[in-house]
């Protein structure tokens, strides 16, 4: 067996295998979280009650920002968890809901049926959603006291994830 030739072959093939492993190991549909550690994009929206609400109103407070819609089935799964957390941490953390591609009426009906402890905002042209790089609902962002985006949770929030991220933004 010619070892020299074998080693050259292995060295030539290894980078290709590495690249293939990298390619197959990443989900091509997963949107990267580019806002990590960046300042949270500012917004100026209206609440479901018609009140103007901006990010600047919550300066110095940790924020959980949840994009959701009444037509989104997975959003129902995490709704109660978010409501319980909003009630439990009402003094320490701001819980904001952003209604995504939905009508105010449908959102209000949903909240009347399932309960609401959060400030709910309307984003009629999805400008805030695009500013945060949202690619679907539910999607939640955790912002610390310094106004930096610490974590993005695409999909349904699990209790352990919610509490571990809450801990981080409350400590920072």
């Amino acid at each position: 067996m010619n070892w020299r030739r074998t080693w050259i072959g292995v060295l030539l093939v290894l980078p290709f295998i590495g690249l293939l492993a990298l390619g197959f190991g990443t989900d091509p549909h997963a949107v990267p979280f580019v806002l990590k550690g960046e300042d949270a994009p500012s917004f100026s929206l209206q609440s479901l009650e018609g009140e103007p609400v901006g990010l600047k109103d919550y300066r110095g407070k940790p924020i959980v920002m949840n994009f959701w819609a009444s037509w989104c089935e997975p959003c129902k799964l995490e709704h109660q968890l978010l409501q319980n957390a909003a009630r439990r941490f009402a003094e320490e953390v701001v819980f904001l809901g952003v209604v995504y591609q939905d009508t105010p009426e449908a959102a209000q009906q949903f909240l009347a049926r399932h309960g609401n402890q959060m400030t709910q905002l309307l984003d009629p042209e999805s400008k805030t959603a695009i500013d945060y790089g949202v690619s679907g609902v539910p999607e939640s962002f955790f912002i610390n006291r310094q106004g930096k985006v610490i974590h993005k949770e695409p999909g349904v929030l699990r209790p352990e994830r919610l509490f571990s991220e809450l801990k981080k933004i409350m400590q920072d």
Binding site: V31, P32, V34, L35, I130, D131, G133
Partner: peptide, 8 residues
């Protein structure tokens, strides 16, 4: 858009 969604 790159600043929001990355080069993806």
């Amino acid at each position: 858009f790159i600043g929001r969604y990355g080069e993806w």
